[in-house]
């Protein structure tokens, strides 16, 4: 546990010293918020000319009218957020990892250089995202059937179980990003190195991932009930909940990514 606290302390020092390492996550968060806002505008002209036909075809005309557009918004945004996470989120995380490595090595962090490095590994990053997302999706599809979980646990507890699965899968690949960007290994080699590091430092790794992730729980529960808020006197609260969720996710992901990178760099030099 001490090693975890020391890592967090070092993480905080890096952030204070070079807050610019937060920039990639700001970009990622801004794009997510933009996607959310565009989806919110889906029933309204001029965005409706583009988004209304597919929404009408898939979900029905009802969801292009107030306040039912807010009932559909969480589901729409989930898809949009996945796309942002896959094609931009991973890249920005990689950029952040590169910048943290620069700060750790007492170099001036460069967004542009880290971006170029990230682009060079873009295919590997997207593939990594697809694999980890795929595993989570498959597990969440079959787990409820195996244990009849959703029926027995209720919505909130099911959300917590989903988060646990997400933490486990995230921990499984947590060092891939630093290894890909800093050590510049190939995907398979990075995976093997990742497993080796994970197994040799399992407990601190899981704590570094799990503890900040617990902050997700209230947000996830709130988001799972978001469509119910559409039926209250203030349907726009759905939009606010989702936006706060983006910001919360941004902060939590940022903290996890940087602390894992710092921990990776510390163990590399030791």
């Amino acid at each position: 546990m001490m090693v975890v606290f020391k890592t967090w302390r070092d993480t905080w020092r890096i952030i204070r010293k070079q807050p610019v390492v937060f920039l990639p996550f700001i970009i990622s968060g801004a794009v997510s918020l933009l996607v959310l806002y565009i989806l919110f505008l889906a029933p309204q002209r001029p965005i409706a000319y583009l988004l209304a036909p597919p929404i009408r075809a898939i979900a029905g005309e009802k969801f292009l009218h107030y306040p039912f557009n807010f009932v559909l918004l969480p589901n729409l945004f989930r898809l949009g957020d996945l796309a942002v996470s896959a094609f931009l989120g991973m890249l920005m995380s990689a950029v952040s990892v590169g910048m943290v490595a620069d700060v750790y090595s007492r170099r001036t962090p460069s967004f542009l250089i880290s971006l170029i490095v990230g682009f060079k590994r873009y295919f590997a990053l997207v593939l990594l995202w697809i694999i980890s997302f795929g595993i989570i999706a498959v597990v969440m599809k079959f787990l409820p059937h195996l244990f009849n979980l959703q029926a027995r646990l209720g919505k909130s507890a099911f959300v917590a179980v989903s988060l646990c699965v997400s933490i486990v899968v995230q921990s499984l690949f947590v060092y891939m990003l630093p290894i890909l960007i800093i050590d510049r290994k190939k995907l398979w080699g990075a995976f093997l190195e990742n497993i080796r590091m994970l197994l040799s430092r399992l407990v601190p790794t899981v704590i570094l991932v799990a503890l900040p992730s617990l902050l997700y729980v209230p947000m996830l529960i709130l988001k799972s009930y978001a469509s119910l808020f559409a039926r209250t006197g203030f349907p726009e609260s759905v939009l606010i909940i989702l936006a706060v969720g983006v910001i919360a996710a941004l902060v939590i992901d940022y903290w996890i990514t940087i602390s894992i990178t710092v921990y990776f760099l510390k163990n590399k030099t030791e």
Partner: peptide, 12 residues
């Protein structure tokens, strides 16, 4: 433009 477009659709 995006922000203001959210205030102009009279139907909505």
């Amino acid at each position: 433009l995006l922000v203001t477009s959210g205030c102009t659709d009279t139907r909505y």
